[in-house]
Simulated scan of single mutants.
Amino acid sequence: METLEVRGPFSFRGDNSIVDRPDASVNGFYIWCVHVDQSLYRAYYVGEAVNIASRHRTHRRDCLRGNYQAHCLDGLRRNESILMHRPGDGMISRFAHIDREKFNNEFVDNMCLFFAEVPLTGDKKADKTLRCRYEAGIVRHIENAGLNVLNVGRISNWAGEESQARLETRGFEIEALSGAVVSI
């Protein structure tokens, strides 16, 4: 069984920005979390990318422009899905009194980012398939634990034999994931 080290927490911008980390320019999966308590984090979004740092430059830009749906941060900390912003629509009507730009900045500044490198196989299609297997496996693992992964790029199905991987974290815990064995 393979063990992957999940690194973090990082931010979208500032001194601890994931986009400025040379070690984040890797093939792998990433998890956006909200900080719940002390060193505990709850997953909000799971994705995969050929280059984690580069993908997060795009995510940061799109979040700040309001191109993604976004949920109430306090609700996420309680494992509640309270949609506040829709792409194209802006703030949903009951939150129309909140400034969209301020909300988007607060959302970006409160996301805690984690990533793990997935070994390359040398074949682009096989590498994509493996990243998607990790992405889907992590999402299913969290959902099966009774938690909400509220957003995910897509859940891909795959052919082939199921395998497992252990996700290790050091100095922090991602709820339902740290130290878990995930089926991929």
Rank of each mutant, 00 (worst) to 15 (best):
E101V: 03
R13W: 04
L167K: 01
Y44L: 08
R133Y: 03
D123C: 10
R55C: 02
N105G: 05
N105R: 14
N27P: 01
E2A: 12
R166K: 15
E143P: 01
N110H: 13
E106Q: 12
R140P: 01
A116N: 14
A176Y: 06
A24N: 09
T169W: 01
T169Q: 02
E161Q: 14
F95Y: 15
R131S: 01
G66Y: 08
L177A: 07
D127F: 05
T58P: 03
V36M: 00
N157H: 05
Q38G: 04
F12V: 03
D37K: 13
N110L: 00
L4Y: 14
C112I: 00
E117M: 05
I92V: 15
S93P: 05
R65V: 03
F107V: 09
D123V: 11
H85R: 09
I174A: 06
F95Q: 12
S178L: 04
A159H: 09
D37A: 08
G14V: 07
N16H: 12
D123P: 01
R94G: 00
T121K: 09
E106T: 07
A53Y: 11
D37G: 00
E2M: 09
C112M: 14
G171P: 10
E135Y: 11
D62E: 13
K102Y: 10
V181P: 02
M1E: 13
G88P: 04
A145K: 12
Q69W: 00
R55K: 03
K124Q: 15
A116M: 15
L130K: 15
E175D: 13
P9E: 06
A43R: 04
E5R: 03
G28C: 05
S81W: 02
E106V: 09
C33S: 12
S25A: 11
N79S: 05
K128N: 04
N148E: 14
R61E: 08
I155M: 15
A53F: 09
